[in-house]
Design a protein around this nucleic acid. Sequence first.
DNA 1: ATGGTTGTGAGACAA
Length: 278
Amino acid sequence: MSLQRLTLTTWNVNSIKARLSHTVEYAKNHHPDILLLQEIKCPDENFPLMEFEDLGYNCLIHGQKSYNGVAILSKLPMEETARGLPQLPFDETAPQARYLEAEISLPPQKQTEKAPPIGALRVASIYLPNGGEIDSDKFRYKMQFFDALKNHAEDLAKLDIPVALGGDYNVAPADIDVHDPKGLRGTTCFHPEEQKRFRRILNSGFADAWRVQHPEEQSFSWWDYRGGGWQHNKGLRIDFMLCNAMAMDACHETVIHADERGREKASDHAPVSITLEF
DNA sequence: ATGGTTGTGAGACAA
């Protein structure tokens, strides 16, 4: 019997225009079935659709001028299920394009076993606010976003299909996920209030796929452009593929493609990829 | 506390 194999990748590209060749090359080399992008930094109409359609991707874009922006590229048919979080709808006057969700249709499978075939997969591309300074309005907005995401995650957890929430969560969950826990404790992206809210999302029914499969390993997904972060391996693990139980059960591999960060003109984030088998 | 770098878009702001 043949299993359906799906690769899903999340990547904060830090401008799709600046990273077009890197992103296209990545897609050609690793051929993910689903590519969740963050920080595309362009309005919908400026997204380089053709380049990805030529590679066989259907594209959903939720962008804005200059900042933020998320996208879902899928080789399988999909339908948009949310643009913005229910509690934080997209506001044209103060745009924060940070959440996009879609249901992916899986091709029909032969029913050879007791379990019914899985017909669909729900995915989201998420760009959590960075938060700026602790105690700033931006930080409070980040907490709001976490809470709104957790409430929505509770609903997604009730679905009877695999769910994968990929993105840049802008928080490192534990000491092992940062290069200098003592020095960074209490700073943006390593603050207990952020970590508490991230845990609430996990507790609503999701697992951090990479950590589940690499319980002891230290590997980062982001390295600051400043101060030679990459050269000194001073990084954080803040990009995740969060899976519900059905997705986690199907997850055979999780990879952080850190090599992408070492390239010329690299994004400051590395892609994180999971492979599911149904 | 500050600075270091990259991206957008053409100067300050975000990260």
